[in-house]
């Protein structure tokens, strides 16, 4: 993938890709961010990926080491832990050609979702995207991929369970908590047990 070289705005190591994506969204960057997960570096591997942006909204993602783009590309550099993020600004016209490479495009909220696991930011990014691009966020395959990831869903659910219990104490609702809510992932369909 060819992206015109941009003007480096800043380069720093961050704990969370969400912070970078949020800042880029707020400043409505047109350009690209190079992500280099630091853990991989320690292991002697190079992992590096690029996400391009138009007015703060992600357009393309590309794993420069594996040479894979799009959502699969994103997953290549979605590594937890500190990441060096180098933010570059590029003239919008200069990026236009690169942005036409259909197979590297990602829905606006996808980098926040995949790189940072941040649904709220994904949603905010989608809301900030032009109308035509918001539709991409509703692409059915993203929903199906989300639902197919049973581990990720169990994580959402177990976090919500813990949060519900913690807040019940805060709100004095302790004594109405159900005793029998187990840790099982599956809910049996059919008659329920109240």
């Amino acid at each position: 993938m060819r992206i015109p070289r941009g003007e480096l705005r800043r380069s720093r190591v961050v704990d969370d890709a969400a912070a970078v994506l949020r800042a880029v969204l707020d400043e409505e960057l047109t350009g690209y961010v190079v992500f280099e997960p630091q853990d991989a570096l320690l292991l002697g591997e190079t992992t590096r990926g690029v996400v391009t942006f138009e007015d703060g909204v992600p357009v393309l993602a590309y794993d420069t080491e594996r040479e894979v783009g799009g959502r699969d590309g994103l997953e290549g550099f979605a590594v937890t832990g500190p990441t060096r993020a180098a933010v570059h600004a590029v003239d919008a016209d200069a990026l236009a050609d690169a942005h036409e490479v259909e197979e590297f495009r990602v829905p606006p909220g996808e980098p926040a979702r995949v790189l940072a696991g941040d649904e709220r930011l994904a949603e905010r990014t989608t809301d900030a995207a032009p109308a035509a691009r918001r539709e991409e966020g509703r692409d059915r395959s993203a929903v199906e991929a989300f639902l197919a990831d049973a581990d990720a869903i169990e994580e959402i659910r177990s976090e919500a369970r813990e949060e519900a219990r913690a807040r019940a104490s805060e709100w004095g609702l302790d004594d109405v908590l159900a005793d029998d809510v187990g840790d099982s992932a599956a809910i049996e369909p059919g008659p329920d047990s109240r």
């Binding site: 909220g109 979702r113 649904e119 709220r120 994904a122 949603e123 989608t126 966020g137 509703r138 059915r140 993203a142 929903v143 989300f146 639902l147 869903i153 959402i156 659910r157 919500a160 369970r161 949060e163 519900a164 219990r165 019940a168 609702l173 109405v176 908590l177 159900a178 029998d180 809510v181 809910i187 329920d192 047990s193 109240r194």
Partner: peptide
């Protein structure tokens, strides 16, 4: 809605409900 954020938030509200013994 058939979107990721909506499904994700729906799962959360369901977990809260189940924590209080309220089924779906």
């Amino acid at each position: 809605q058939p979107t990721v954020p909506s499904l994700s938030d729906g799962l959360k509200v369901q977990e809260y409900a189940h924590s209080y013994g309220t089924d779906t």
